[in-house]
Nucleic acid binder design. Structure first.
Lengths: 139, 139
DNA sequence: GCAGTATGATCCATGCCTGAACCAAATGGC
DNA sequence: GCCATTTGGTTCAGGCATGGATCATACTGC
C-alpha cells in the first residue's frame, strides 16, 4: 500500500533543525554557536573587520541582531568594536587574536561535522539535493 | 569550469529558514506562528486536550518551552489550562472555541502555502527530496 | 504511615531573532 | 552655512528555544 507521505515542509524543517543541533552540539565544546561562527567567518572573509551594518547584510539579518551578536562576541573576547575614522556613526567589528583562533577551530569542527553528517549521501545524491533545494529557494 | 559547490549544511539550513519565514509571514495574518499552530495541531489530534508534559513530548521540545508557549496561547485565548483530576501536579491544556477556529484557519493557510511553495517540484522530485532528507535524518 | 525519591510544572538566566522607536552623525538642497 | 532627511547603531519589547533550580504532589519501600 502507498506510504503516507509526510508534509514536505515539515520534512525539510525537521531535517534542518536536526542537522543544526548536531553541529551546534559540537561547536558548543569550544564555546561557539553557529551564529557566532558565521559572524567570525564573515569577518575573516572581509579581512578581519567590518562595519556592523555590513556584517548584518552579509549575515542576512537585521541590524539589531548584529548589535547583540557582537555584544556576545565581544564579551567572549573574540571581536572588538572600534571607531570608524571616516564616519562617526559607524562602528567597526574587528577580529581579535582569540577570535582568529576560535574561528580556525570552529570552522574545522563545522567542516568535520558536515562531512560526517553528509557522508550518508553519494556525491550524486548531494548534487541532486542541491538542485532541489535551489528550486525551492528560487524566488 | 567547475561550479564551486556551497556547503550542503548551509544549503539545507538556508532553504529551511526561507520556507519557514514565508509560511510564518502568512500565518502572522491571523496572529499565529508555526510553533503555535503546531501546538494547536497536537491538541486537536489528541482530542482537544493534553497534559503539558505530553504536549512537550509531542512537540519534541523541553517542558519549560511548553509552559511559555501555552502562556502565550492562553493570552491569545486559544487554549486554557485546567486541573488534572487524577494528578494534582499535572495541568491540562484544552483547546477553546477560538482555538478550534484558529487552528482550522491556520492549518488551511499552512497547507495552501506549502502547496504553493512546493509546486516548483514535480511529484518525482518531491519523492526524491523526501528520500534524501530521510537519509540525513537517519540516526 | 513515613521517609526518600520520581515527576509535572514553573521560574529564571541566557541565546538568538525580529520590528519599532530612538539618537547622533552625515548629507544634500538651497 | 543651515535645516531636513537619511543612515548607522543601539535600545526596548516580545517570540521562541534551551537547561538548571525549585516546588508541590505523587509514588515506593519499608
Amino acid at each position: 500500500m502507498a506510504v503516507t507521505q509526510q508534509s514536505s515542509l515539515f520534512a525539510v524543517l525537521r531535517t534542518a533543525s536536526c542537522l543544526e543541533s548536531r553541529v551546534e552540539a559540537r561547536l558548543a565544546d569550544i564555546g561557539l554557536s553557529l551564529p557566532k561562527l558565521a559572524a567570525l567567518q564573515r569577518l575573516t572573509q572581509a579581512g578581519e573587520s567590518l562595519p556592523l551594518g555590513q556584517l548584518a547584510e552579509k549575515l542576512a539579518c537585521v541590524k539589531s541582531n548584529v548589535t547583540q551578536l557582537v555584544d556576545r562576541l565581544e564579551a567572549d573576547g573574540l571581536v572588538a568594536r572600534t571607531a570608524d575614522p571616516n564616519d562617526g556613526r559607524s562602528r567597526i567589528a574587528v577580529l581579535t587574536a582569540a577570535g582568529r583562533r576560535a574561528f580556525a577551530r570552529g570552522i574545522g569542527i563545522q567542516r568535520q561535522a558536515e562531512q560526517e553528517l553528509f557522508s550518508v549521501l553519494t556525491p550524486d545524491e548531494s548534487d541532486h539535493l542541491h538542485r532541489l533545494l535551489a528550486k525551492l529557494d528560487a524566488h
